[in-house]
């Protein structure tokens, strides 16, 4: 089930934020590519990239929140998260996407596509977890 309150948007989604990849390279958040996440996870000893497919998008408990149901990894585990509509997820091969891209762009100047059912997002799990 979803958590009771959506998580506020953290500062690193603001356009121009400096992100450090696992190999030490610095990139702006808006310049990140799918390969950056994949290569960083390959270097990481603890974290593993998983594919999380958007299965459902429903209204959340507050007007600006949505509950997104993901199917995670090879096991297709069902995971729900409640987030603000402007919360961006990184979609494989596409880049930043949110349920309300206009609001994400307005608040964070981060260009976004519309997050849709069927989109495959980058997510993380712990290595060794089965």
């Amino acid at each position: 089930s979803a958590s009771s309150s959506p998580v506020a948007l953290p500062p690193f989604f603001m356009r121009g934020s400096i992100i450090q990849l696992a190999d030490g390279e610095l990139k702006r958040v808006e310049d990140l590519k799918t390969e950056d996440f994949i290569q960083s996870a390959e270097i990481s000893s603890e974290l593993k990239i998983d594919s999380s497919t958007v299965e459902r998008i429903d209204s959340g408990q507050s007007p600006n929140a949505v509950v997104i149901q993901f199917s995670v990894g090879e096991l297709k585990a069902q995971v729900c998260v409640e987030v603000l509509v402007e919360y961006p997820f990184f979609v494989f091969g596409q880049g930043w996407s949110s349920c309300c891209p206009d609001r994400t762009t307005q608040l964070f100047e981060l260009s976004c596509a519309k997050l849709c059912v069927g989109d495959v997002c980058v997510s993380l799990t712990l290595r060794g977890m089965r």
């Binding site: 500062p11 696992a22 999380s52 990184f90 993380l124 977890m129």
Partner: peptide, 25 residues
């Protein structure tokens, strides 16, 4: 004079949701 302030640097993994699948076994 304005002292240069260090720019915050965020680790790549902070941008990615941590979605832990439920353990099946």
């Amino acid at each position: 004079n304005v002292e240069p302030r260090s720019v915050p640097v965020f680790p790549w993994h902070s941008l990615v949701p941590f979605l832990a699948p439920t353990q099946s076994d």
